[in-house]
Design a protein around this nucleic acid. Structure first.
Lengths: 196, 196
DNA sequence: GGGTCAAACGGACCGCGGTCCGGTTCTATT
DNA sequence: AATAGAACCGGACCGCGGTCCGTTTGACCC
């Protein structure tokens, strides 16, 4: 019987070839993304680019959404770091209201820039899982810090919903709104919600 | 040269067999939906069920999304009629605020009930096209009638965003919120936005 | 080094959405 | 009724996401 003494280690352990392939696949995906845009990223193409079989891609990442989520995760992680410990106004300081506004603007820009990727990551991505996402927790925290009264989780959702990719693409693509207007609209919404 | 004297007629005219097939396909789709749920509705299956070739389905409805949108359109149309001319509080009466609240509750229920279908209808469905949808127009109108000041189109979007299927399914499926709470949350949001 | 076995690998295979094109059918016109 | 040609029809075909299973490989123990 194996001793398994990797105390705080997570998952049962990953074989070295598996780890190597995961890395190779992620890099292959990145290469493909900026060579043929997001929807040029075919599972077969990624496999070929990384020099492995298609089955391997699926074992590592479960699905196309999973792969996209993994790619997305890189930039998303450093954004989260910026929120948790970066410079103001996004990072920690003593005016939660200003921080909330900065959060919205930042999220807005990201969702517009990486819209295709986020959409491709689907249910494995931004939203989902473990009950609530990072953004939801952060907004709830800020609302509480501001002193808003009411059903905080619901209010947080209401504030984040207009930042969703689907909504933004509708506004920019079909209704031809520009970024500044959408930002201003979000600020206004926040003020109204906070004022209560 | 053809005289084309169908004055207010829309599109170049539809051949009778084409019209017959469109009907047959829509009914086939409906039959399949409540026999095998929405994602059992395969283009091939619909074609077979209607007794036509697969190509025909695509010529009539462009894509799977298009077919779903056509199916959705039936219930959606009668809902729109209820909004425009039905009984209060959803239909016309003299308290726009109450009507707005009723709108939200109604939309909420529909989006939860027909979520799968709406999602399957995708960009050809609820949202899209001709610049703005029926719901957007209605909410903008009500906000104006209430006397809200500000960027009405943006505020309307902000109010409708939390009613989107993606959001609702997250709330109900992952965060286990019940309908009453979501309704209450929306009412609260509306009051805050209107109070401004 | 040699042996063992779980884990990873690869690529054939499947069903679906979507396209294409040669043959067929309806409508308008005479 | 006959003609012409546009519109429609069917189903073979393609690429993609996803699955399956026989084969290989790496980790661990002797």
């Amino acid at each position: 019987m194996p001793i398994e003494l990797h105390l705080a280690d997570q998952q049962p352990l990953e074989r070295s070839d598996a780890a190597r392939n995961r890395e190779a696949l992620l890099e292959a995906a990145l290469r493909l993304i900026d060579r043929c845009s997001v929807d040029g990223v075919t599972m077969g193409a990624v496999a070929h680019e990384a020099g492995v079989g298609k089955g391997t891609v699926f074992r590592r990442f479960e699905s196309r959404e999973g792969l996209m989520a993994a790619v997305l995760n890189r930039s998303e992680t450093e954004w989260q770091a910026a929120v948790l410990g970066g410079p103001p106004p996004l990072g920690p300081h003593d005016d939660p209201m200003e921080r909330l506004l900065a959060f919205g603007h930042s999220r807005l820009r990201i969702n517009l820039t990486h819209g295709a990727l986020i959409t491709a990551a689907g249910h494995a991505g931004a939203r989902s899982f473990a009950a609530v996402s990072f953004s939801a927790m952060h907004v709830r925290y800020l609302l509480t810090a501001i002193g808003v009264r009411g059903d905080i989780p619901l209010l947080a959702t209401a504030l984040m919903a207009p930042l969703e990719v689907v909504i933004l693409e509708q506004q920019v693509g079909k209704e031809h709104m520009d970024l500044a207007r959408i930002e201003a609209g979000w600020d206004d919404l926040v003020r109204r919600v906070v004022a209560g």
